[in-house]
């Protein structure tokens, strides 16, 4: 089911010349001195579906936390035409929806409704629109009847879908997902893959699931030790055994 974007549409920038998202030479070190990102540069075009792969500790999650300004490294990062700055932060967080890996961290409210309504509420939308958006978002992840359910009663697969709904209700232009298929049984994983295929948003998905990458994402980026080491068509990269092996990956 297509998701409409009535209110955020106006902030979208001219036709893609590469750039709904543009990162140039991004560097970041944690306070304890650990360097997590080194000269990361990448572009996303509107409608792109891109996989981000690499071993644990490669900097994938750190990079994702930069994409809506939770972490602020050195370098240029623009969403649409908006550079990340304190004034633009609320808008950027409405444009970029981040779904974290562990749905128990993402779903922090007692009920599903409260959680899906959290984003729209903090955007200051009127009540009718909040109800409407929650219904739309739950519909989009095929969980329409789950509003009154308690989060801790849900299965892992259900939690992951609700976690996606919590950002869909903000009607973002870009979806960032951190290991969406991790910890799911085959059936729940299949349902998730079908869901991701149907969502129209631009997508950057970090994952270890290379079978899913081959199936869903035309383009993939490989990161290792804080750097982007490869960025190109999935079909090409996934058959490059030497490249994959050099970065701790296995051909699917």
């Amino acid at each position: 089911m297509p998701v409409k974007h009535p209110s955020t549409q106006q902030f979208i920038l001219p036709d893609c010349e590469g750039d709904i998202l543009k990162i140039e030479k991004l560097n970041f070190a944690y306070p304890d001195g650990h360097i997590a990102l080194r000269d990361v540069s990448l572009n996303l075009c509107s409608g792109d579906k891109v996989a981000l792969v690499g071993p644990n500790g490669a900097g994938k999650s750190t990079l994702m936390l930069h994409l809506n300004g939770i972490l602020r490294g050195e370098g240029d990062l623009t969403i649409g035409n908006l550079p990340i700055s304190d004034e633009q932060l609320p808008l950027i967080r409405a444009l970029v929806g981040v779904v974290f890996q562990n749905p128990d961290d993402q779903l922090f409210s007692p009920t599903v409704f409260d959680d899906v309504a959290f984003g729209p509420l903090h955007m200051g939308l009127p009540e009718d629109e909040i109800y409407q958006r929650v219904a739309q978002a739950l519909d989009a992840v095929q969980m329409a009847d789950f509003g009154e359910r308690l989060s801790h009663h849900l299965s892992m697969g259900q939690k992951k879908r609700i976690a996606i709904a919590t950002v869909l209700s903000m009607q973002p232009q870009i979806l960032i997902l951190d290991e969406p298929s991790a910890g799911l049984d085959p059936r729940a994983r299949r349902a998730l893959i079908n869901l991701l295929r149907e969502l129209p948003q631009t997508m950057l998905v970090s994952t270890h699931d290379l079978h899913m990458v081959r199936e869903l994402f035309p383009r993939m980026i490989i990161m290792d030790e804080g750097r982007v080491v490869a960025d190109g068509p999935t079909g090409k990269l996934l058959v490059d055994a030497t490249l994959l092996e050099a970065h701790g990956l296995e051909m699917p």
């Binding site: 609320p90 981040v98 309504a117 903000m170």
Partner: peptide, 14 residues
Amino acid sequence: AMLARGYTGHIRTL
């Protein structure tokens, strides 16, 4: 996760 969804220090609920 709260920041990512626009939390600014004031909790709002419906």
